[in-house]
């Protein structure tokens, strides 16, 4: 069956569409800030592992930058999930305090550890700059001996709050957004939105060719090539999807289904902004969908995974794979 017939039509211009698009864009901004945060972590790790010669200023500015990024992330999260706002800010304030603590003394005020038996090449524990940096890294990601409340944990929590909130809204959305006149075709289940056009353009029939979106094309490439989009025997697993796409970006998630899945991707010439972010609840085994090379985190609410800063070819390959896996018959039978 022709995929074009499978794609839903967004017929009516609707203020809810504007809201949906803005929400999508805000969520992507959250992801962007999260990425920048992760980059900062990575930079710190690189410095300590690479035995860089650094000064205290490097470490203090790292701390400042992390707090700033967190600040931005929290704000985005509060816009998307206002009901969790106070909790988010409370936690954020705690982390800010921790940052101030680190800035105030850190490695310099700690007692010196004189361990004469230490290998002389193990310089990390002695230089105050390195000591401070390791404490900062502990605050970022923790270590097995001392888990505590890390920035990474906080970041994951933020995602959970936001995704939960978006899920709740989706239920209402599918009613509001596509109420009038769209016939439900049992075979089709993807609503297609041009992220920037559909807010203001008179509704038109959207096809895959209409939307000039690189990630969307790749995502549906194998699917497009004729594999069944859905196992119609498995009505139980029937899912409605919504894809909001622009030239280089794709937001693809479940709209109405009994499992939750979300994919965000950017595929462009500019390597630094490329990424794929995936969320799946526990009814789907995320490792079966993704290629290796994704960083995976498991939370109570679901699984998160991401791959950052890859070349466009890598992103494209990954998208083809994910698309194929997601709509593959076998996966759905869980």
């Amino acid at each position: 069956m022709n995929i074009l017939e499978k794609l839903k039509i967004v017929k009516h211009k609707n203020p809810d569409i504007i809201d949906f698009c803005i929400e999508t864009i805000r969520f992507r901004k959250l992801l962007e800030n999260a990425q920048a945060l992760l980059d900062l972590f990575e930079d710190g790790y690189e410095k300590i592992l690479g035995e860089y010669i650094l000064d205290r200023h490097y470490v203090t500015s790292l701390i400042d930058n992390v707090v700033e990024r967190l600040d931005l992330m929290i704000y985005d999260a509060c816009v998307l999930a206002p009901e969790s706002g106070k909790e988010l800010y409370t936690q954020y304030d705690k982390h800010k305090l921790k940052a101030e603590e680190l800035l105030g003394g850190g490695g310099y005020s700690e007692e010196k550890s004189f361990d004469n038996n230490k290998d002389s090449s193990d310089l990390n524990s002695v230089d105050p700059e390195y000591k401070l940096l390791s404490e900062v890294l502990k605050w970022f990601k923790g270590d097995p001996s001392d888990p505590g409340e890390t920035v990474m944990d906080f970041m994951l929590q933020i995602y959970v709050y936001v995704l939960k909130s978006l899920e709740t809204k989706n239920i209402l959305k599918s009613e509001a957004l596509f109420k009038s006149g769209i016939s439900k075709d049992p075979g089709s289940n993807i609503y297609l939105i041009d992220l920037w056009k559909d807010a203001v353009v008179s509704p038109k029939i959207r096809t895959l060719d209409d939307i000039n979106s690189i990630p969307l094309k790749y995502f549906l490439m194998d699917v497009y090539n004729g594999r069944a989009l859905q196992d119609s025997k498995n009505e139980k697993k029937a899912a409605t999807w919504i894809a909001a796409a622009s030239e280089y970006s794709l937001s693809f998630n479940t709209l109405k289904s009994d499992f939750q899945f979300r994919l965000e991707a950017t595929a462009s010439d500019y390597k630094k902004s490329n990424f794929i972010f995936v969320f799946a609840d526990h009814s789907v085994k995320i490792e079966n969908i993704l290629s290796s090379g994704f960083h995976i985190e498991k939370t109570d609410y679901g699984q998160l995974a991401w791959s950052l800063g890859a070349a466009s070819e890598t992103i494209e390959d990954n998208l083809i794979l994910i698309g194929r896996n997601l709509f593959h018959r076998d996966l759905r039978q869980m």
Binding site: I18, C21, I22, W196, K197, A199, V200, V201
Partner: peptide
């Protein structure tokens, strides 16, 4: 405003 900005993007 949002509409205007979307339009400018287009």
């Amino acid at each position: 405003l949002s509409e205007i900005i979307f339009q400018l993007r287009n």
